[in-house]
Design a binder for these strands. Structure first.
Length: 116
RNA sequence: GGAGAAGAUCAGAUGAUCGUCGGCAGAAUUUAUCUGCCGGAGGAAAGUCCGAGCUCCACAGGGCAGGAUGGUCGCUAACGGCGACUGGGGGGCUCACCGCUUUUCCGGUGACGGAAAAGGCAUGGUAAACCCCAUCCGGAGCAAGACCAAAUAGGAGAACGUUUAAGGGCUGCCCGCCUGAAGUUCUCGGGUAGUGUCGCUAGAGGCGGCAGGCAACUGCCGUCCCAGAUGAAUGAUCAUCGUUGCGUCGCGGGUAACCAAAACGCAAAACAGGACUCGGCUUAUGAUCUUCUCUUGUG
RNA sequence: GGGGUCGUAGUUAAGUUGGUUAUAACGCCGGCCUGUCACGCCGGAGGGCGUGGGUUCAAGUCCCAUCGGCCCGC
């Protein structure tokens, strides 16, 4: 499989799996994002993204999801192996989010988590 | 130059790298995976305010209730939409107001205007509220609906009923109809629920030409295929060009204030993302162009 | 995505042929009672129809647009 891909196999697509991650996972948060990490039995790193309607309208939500996906693709080494990670966007998201700022904040969030 | 109205067009472009959804072909060959090619959001995709197609409710029947519309003619699959023509747009009631009549005060040379009080419901006007009249409307909605896989199987309560049938469904009610020969219906609880399949995209379709019509629109011919996701696909980074604004410099123009080409640097680029599909309406919003109206300055 | 329902004082609500100054309870303020507080009694104030237009002499009510909250579905 290609290194920088993001296929359906690497996504969390089931509602019951989301609930399981919320119940058993470890919660971390930064200024604009919240992450939940939980081990899985599939042998791959998987990512789920949650952006609720309270964050904004459809254009804004799609953009946030694309930026988070891009961060996952290009920084897979920061994610723990055989774990499911859910990244949630908070309500105070700035209207014009650039990839550079999102990448910086998420990098800081995940490197801090690995140190603990 | 400024303000406003109406209409039309576009919604930055190209390339590279990484990545994504669908289709086709090949490798591999149960899936999974890899490679190549092609295609991949809007004028409003939005709000869900109207109208339809389509699907289910057995058929989609009659009356009442309820809802919607209200000048005429036409267009259309249909409409509350659109076009043209008209300049007012169905009929009625009155406790409110205006108007009407009388008196007083104020302003004015005056016509008259303003304010207050009373009279009267005999006369006029005004509502998208109420009554009547005409026309139209069965209900729900793709989470409609059909199939496969998986899973248990039968538990508790309530209502009604067992022979001139109850109950249920079709519409809120009635008639009528359908189902129903001993159970039926409702509620609660329990089990299962998938990277499932179809519906799912060729359509009242787009573009061009000709003809008819004042127009909305219609007919004929040619040509094109243009998203089908389901925790939900269009993105990120870089480069070049282009648009706009600002700053530096100032080829040039001008008596002057000033206007300014080329170059360089910086910044900006709106509203907004399909979710069964169309026709409208409404709302949000950037730029350019055309026509018209008002106003200011100069010649 | 589809359908429905609601928005009125600080809070919970009432408000229908459209027509006096938009109402009630709790809350708030002052007084009485008590050694003090609460309860109770008496009196009072304040401020509100989500927002913007329209119809009308007059709109919480009718019409249009818009914003926000809540509920339902195989």
């Amino acid at each position: 499989m290609k290194e920088q891909s993001y296929r359906k196999l690497e996504r969390v697509t089931n509602r019951s799996r989301f609930k399981g991650i919320y119940n058993q996972g470890v919660w971390r948060s930064s200024q604009h994002f919240t992450s939940v990490t939980c081990g899985n039995t599939q042998g791959v790193k998987r990512l789920g993204i949650t952006v609720t309607k309270k964050t904004g309208k459809a254009v804004k939500r799609n953009r946030i999801k694309r930026l988070i996906r891009e961060f996952f693709r290009l920084n897979k080494n920061l994610f723990p192996a055989e774990h499911d990670v859910v990244i949630m966007a908070k309500r105070n998201m700035p209207p014009r989010l650039t990839y550079q700022k999102a990448c910086d904040e998420l990098t800081e969030l995940f490197t801090r988590k690995n140190n603990i």
